[in-house]
């Protein structure tokens, strides 16, 4: 049962698979959601409102949702070249994002040591927003660069 499911899944992937999942128009919807959430986040920072921390977290999450919609939406001209560039951008985003998350606390520690700020502390921003936004931004950046250059 499990083997046959895996086999049909692999066959489906061989024929192109389900990714990207949603149509091109969602790319714009995703951008609008992300930009609106950025504007809302800025207004929360500028205006003094009740439950500011709650709204800050909420809008940061909405930014991620908007960017995620952009990432999983199809491109205007979807073909084998775009598909190849997409997977290459995913690989670059994964490696660069992971490297940054791993190296940043070490770099911060070295800078603190050089500046003589003792005792040394382990500083690592492990928030979902930081990690997810790194991956999503790097993917979108590399995908746009590859599309223009390759």
């Amino acid at each position: 049962m499990k083997t046959s499911f895996l086999k049909s899944f692999c066959e489906y992937e061989k024929k192109g698979g389900a990714f990207p999942f949603i149509s091109y128009k969602f790319k714009w919807i995703g951008f609008i959601i992300a930009i609106t959430a950025v504007a809302a986040l800025l207004s929360v920072k500028i205006l003094e409102i009740l439950q500011a921390e709650f709204y800050k977290q909420l809008f940061m999450h909405v930014i991620l949702i908007g960017l995620f919609i952009v990432v999983i939406a199809k491109d205007k001209n979807e073909d084998e070249r775009i598909n190849k560039l997409r997977y290459r951008a995913f690989a670059f985003a994964f490696v660069l994002g992971t490297a940054m998350i791993l190296l940043m606390p070490l770099a911060a520690m070295c800078l603190d040591a050089l500046a003589g700020r003792l005792p040394l502390e382990w500083e690592q921003d492990q928030s979902i927003f930081f990690i997810m936004s790194s991956f999503l931004f790097y993917y979108l950046m590399y995908f746009q660069i590859f599309k223009r250059q390759l």
């Binding site: 001209n77 070249r81 775009i82 599309k147 390759l150």
Partner: peptide, 9 residues
């Protein structure tokens, strides 16, 4: 059945 950009590339 591909994009013009692909032919150009």
């Amino acid at each position: 059945g591909v994009s013009r950009q692909t032919i150009n590339s």
